[in-house]
């Protein structure tokens, strides 16, 4: 049965909630951890084969935090110069 609601009538009214849901956040953490895992694998493989460490890997360990060391702000929001607070959620357009 058709129920008249603003999203159905207005056409362009469908909203993305400003905050991420817990499963969205969990998936984001999973993606971050996957990147950490890739770097760990590469560095271990180089070590095991007796090769010098790649510069990109060294830089990663020197500069980048692991997923569990990151602040929630860094995990779930990104910089945007057009936003009022210079931060927007990773899910917003």
């Amino acid at each position: 049965m058709f129920k008249s609601t603003s999203p159905l009538f207005g056409g362009l009214l469908w909203k993305i909630p400003w905050r991420l849901s817990p499963p969205q956040k969990a998936r984001q953490r999973k993606r971050l951890r996957a990147v950490d895992e890739v770097v760990d694998t590469v560095s271990e493989a180089l070590k095991r084969n007796g090769m010098p460490m790649a510069k990109a890997v060294e830089r990663w360990y020197a500069e980048m935090p692991q997923e569990e060391e990151m602040l929630p702000k860094d995990k779930y929001t990104i910089y945007d110069r057009k936003e009022k607070s210079y931060r927007k959620g990773i899910h917003s357009k």
């Binding site: 990147v35 890739v38 590469v42």
Partner: peptide, 21 residues
């Protein structure tokens, strides 16, 4: 094969791939 070249390439696309040795 595990080499510095390939390691650098993987680091460029680390967000897209999964890697095993």
């Amino acid at each position: 094969p595990v080499s510095l070249d390939v390691a650098g390439q993987i680091m460029k696309v680390k967000e897209l791939v999964s890697v095993q040795e």
